[in-house]
Each structure stands twice: as C-alpha cells, then as structure tokens.
Nucleic acid binder design. Structure first.
Length: 422
RNA sequence: CGGGGCAUAGUGUAACCUGGUUAACAUACUCGCUUUGGGAGCGAGCGAUUCCCGGUUCAAAUCCGGGUGCCCCGACCA
C-alpha cells in the first residue's frame, strides 16, 4: 500500500472528546473514527487490525470444532419474550417496523441460536454441536466509556455449545478456556490477562472472565499473591481466602474483561423446550455453554497495553502491515533517482515475498513528519531508505518496540524470505 | 440513572466573568519560493449560522430560560 494513497492520515492534536489513551491513539493514527458516543467507524488501518484479530480467533475456534455462521441482528420480540429478556434485558435496543412489529437488536444470540440448533438436533447422535459467529452487537449502555472499551455498537465473537450432559459441557468448557489463552497469546495479551472467577447463574455458581490488566479498565479484580488465581470484585466477599491455596493476601487491580465463558446449562434450552432423545429413547434437556470475545474491545485493550509516548506498538500478528517502508529523499541529492529506484525495488520485492508493506512514498513530507507518523501508526518493523543508508548500500531497519536500529545490506534484504530474518 | 465538566473554521484553543459589529491564534488545507534523518521556513490565500430554540437589550459568542450532544466519576453490566 502506498501511503500517499492511504485513506486516511494522521492527526496532530489529541481529540478533546476522548480521554482514554487507546481511543486517542487509534483516532490520531487513523484507525477509527467516532460517529457518536460508543459508535465508531473502523477505517482501513483499523479494519486491517480487526481482520487480523478475526482471523486468529476464528482459526483457534475452528480448531476446537466451532463452525462459523452468521445470525441476524434484527430479532423479533416474540423470541425475547420466550426467555423474558424483552423485559429484563435493560440494554436491549428496541426498534419498530412500519407495521408495528417490534424487534430487539441482538446484544447476544441465545434467542436465535437455540431455536436454530433445535431444528437440526433431535438425537444424542447430533450432539455435541458447536457454532459461532463474529458479528456486530448492540447494547443500549446507560453510559459508554473509553472509546472501544465500552461501546453501544461493537464487534463480538460468540460461540455456543450444545451437549447431552453437564460432563460433556465441562470437557468442552475447558477446551474453550485453552483456546482462549491461545488466542490471547497470539495477540500478545496473555501476559497481562488473568482468568477470573465471576458471578455465575442458576446453573453454575461461577463463570470465568478473561481480564486484561489496564488502568483504563472498568472492572476491579483481586489476584492471589501466592497462586495468581483472580477473582472479580463483585464476588470477592465470598472469598476471604484464596479458594485454591488458602492465601489471605490479594492484590487489587483494574482490568478490562476481554472475554468470558459461561455454563448456561438449561437456562435457554428450557424456555424453547429444546430436548433430545438419549440412547434409551428418553427425552432430555440439551445442556448449553456460551463463550464470548469482544473483538473491538480487545483491539482497544491491545492499544492500552501496547503503546508508548510516541504511539501504538502493534504485536506482529495483529499489525495492519508487516513492514513500514519509509523513503527519505533530498530533492537536491545527486542520487535521488537511485533512492527512488531502490526503494521501489525493495517495495516490490518484499510484496512478492508475501509481506504486507506500507510504503511511505509521500513527496511533500519532511523526514521528521514521516518518522513521527511511523511511530504513531506503530507497524512493528520500519525500514528506511535514504541517501545516508545508500552510501553504505544499506537500509536502516528498526523494530517499533526497540530503541536501536541496525543497518542491513540491501542485497541481503532482497533475499529475505521471512519476517524474522530482516 | 445521580453528580461534575465541556460545546467557538477540518482539528486544538482564545475572547465569555465585565455585552459594543473585521470572532483571534495555532495547526490542517491551497498557491509560490526555499528546505529534507525526528511533526521545516517565509510570503499569500481559503475556511465559522460561535451546538439548537427562545428571551433580555439599541446591541449577544458573551447575560437569562429551555433543549441537545460529548467527556469524566458513581450506580448498572444477561
């Protein structure tokens, strides 16, 4: 991608209507744009990051058997009435059609997925069943907060599992837990994320949340000083001592919930009368679990964790581009044609090798501005071609997260096969 | 939903308390010349129903009333 062609450009000033660091940086660097409180556009850069996160999540979910589908957002009132959530789900956005039909805009999809799966599952032979989707969700939050961290319209991966019994649900629940840690590892949030005990429902006493430590987080968690088990504030009163190791001392931290897993049991299968026939020919309630990851929130959390005072520092797997190639050209230079030619050659070759390259080909920008922009946008690897580097037949290579750069022979660079070797 | 704050060119701010007719500055943008390794310089230019509605006044960005929007704190969060 030529940066001269990129929609959009960076903004110098800090937006006055955003206080969270992640929202400020994402807006200034041109990843997102605010339409209204808690409602954002994902711009080309932001959408690239979003797509990368989406890819990682769907890969890991498919590894544990999840099959992707896409459910509607417009969900008729009658479905919500079955579970009584038309009344009790306060954040449900309600809309009315021309003929007076009422709908709830999906904040979560039990009311759709249960009757859906019910149509295809009648025997124990059809179970277990795992389906998921990645979709825009709506919640009429009383108060939105911190840019992408708490929005009214947001992107979520929701996985639903259906089982014969609690044991099978239990087994799958543990597999999802592992898959989630794998995802967090790949997006580089694992170190900062704790699996916490959170309040459950009628079926199970507790659910689990994946809480990423950040001062911008809206939740408070207590971490056992001895074994690192974490507990959400709202249920901490039940645990004077750590339930695992009996330690009394906990560390209090602010965190943001990036994912959760929940054993729903028969909470939603009962209202829809969703039963299957077991091996003995008897009817039994289907047992269910649900597992969510907030993609847009995760993107915000990533920036909260991975940034410095100059800008964002994207982890490799989610970065909008692999390489930021920056041309620094002096109009008076005797070798300006050479700079032009060499940079283009590097750009073309790296692309042919499969790298995603953002090439800062802008002619009218000073070197300073280009470097400041590169730091703000935060692509993990930066390659500079200038008169200075060409004198040594080199380019300058720098990792965004490192302070020092190194010179690399152009001939070697052009032979590079993998990102690691540059 | 309770409390606090804010709203003025695309963006960030000033002027508002103490009302006075070219609404200022920076930046972004356009043109010209110069410049080119950490947000370059000079010159010229474009760009504002001062959030909306109403009131007071000879006169409102400024004072008063009522809305709306945005941010923050708290409560809430299947």
């Amino acid at each position: 991608m030529l940066q001269s062609q990129l929609f959009t450009k960076t903004i110098r000033e800090i937006p006055k209507d955003e206080e969270s660091k992640s929202a400020q940086l994402l807006i200034r660097a041109g990843f997102i744009d605010k339409l209204s409180a808690g409602v954002y556009t994902f711009l080309p850069l932001g959408f690239r990051v979003f797509s990368n996160i989406e890819k990682i999540i769907s890969e890991e979910i498919e590894k544990i058997g999840g099959q992707r589908l896409l459910m509607p957002t417009l969900i008729p009132k009658s479905y919500w009435q079955k579970t009584n959530r038309w009344k009790i789900f306060k954040e449900l956005f309600k809309v009315k059609g021309k003929n007076g039909q009422e709908y709830g805009l999906g904040p979560t999809h039990e009311e759709v997925v249960v009757p859906l799966v019910q149509k295809y599952v009648s025997s124990y032979k059809d179970l277990p069943c795992y389906v998921y989707q990645i979709q825009t969700k709506f919640r009429d939050e009383i108060r939105v907060k911190s840019g992408l961290l708490r929005a009214r319209e947001f992107e979520m991966k929701d996985l639903y599992s259906f089982h014969q019994d609690e044991k099978d649900l239990e087994r799958y629940y543990e597999r999802v837990k592992k898959a989630y840690f794998k995802i967090l590892e790949r997006v580089k949030l694992k170190e900062k994320t704790y699996l916490t005990l959170a309040s459950g429902g009628t079926f199970s006493k507790f659910s689990h949340e994946f809480q990423t430590l950040t001062p911008a987080g809206e939740d408070t968690i207590y971490i056992c000083q001895k074994c690192n088990l974490a507990i959400n504030k709202e249920i901490k009163k039940q645990f004077p001592r750590c339930p695992r190791c009996k330690e009394e001392n906990f560390r209090k931290e602010k965190a943001i919930e990036v994912a959760n897993i929940f054993k729903l049991g028969t909470k939603y299968t009962k209202p829809f009368d969703f039963k299957f026939v077991n091996g003995k020919g008897e009817k039994q309630w289907v047992v269910m679990g649900c597992y969510g990851i907030g993609l847009s929130r995760l993107m915000g959390a990533l920036v909260e964790v991975h940034h410095d005072n100059k800008g964002i520092i994207w982890p490799k797997e989610v970065a909008p581009f692999d390489i930021h190639l920056v041309k620094i050209k002096n109009q008076k230079s005797k070798i300006k044609e050479k700079i032009e030619r060499v940079t283009s050659e590097i750009y073309n070759t790296l692309q042919k090798r499969g790298f995603d390259v953002l090439y800062d080909d802008r002619e009218n920008k000073s070197p300073g501005e280009k470097l400041v922009d590169a730091d703000l946008i935060g692509i993990p690897k930066r390659i500079i071609v200038s008169e200075r580097t060409l004198k040594k037949n080199c380019v300058e290579v720098k990792e965004r997260r490192e302070k020092k750069s190194k010179l690399v022979k152009i001939a070697n660079l052009l032979k590079t096969k993998s990102n690691k070797n540059i």
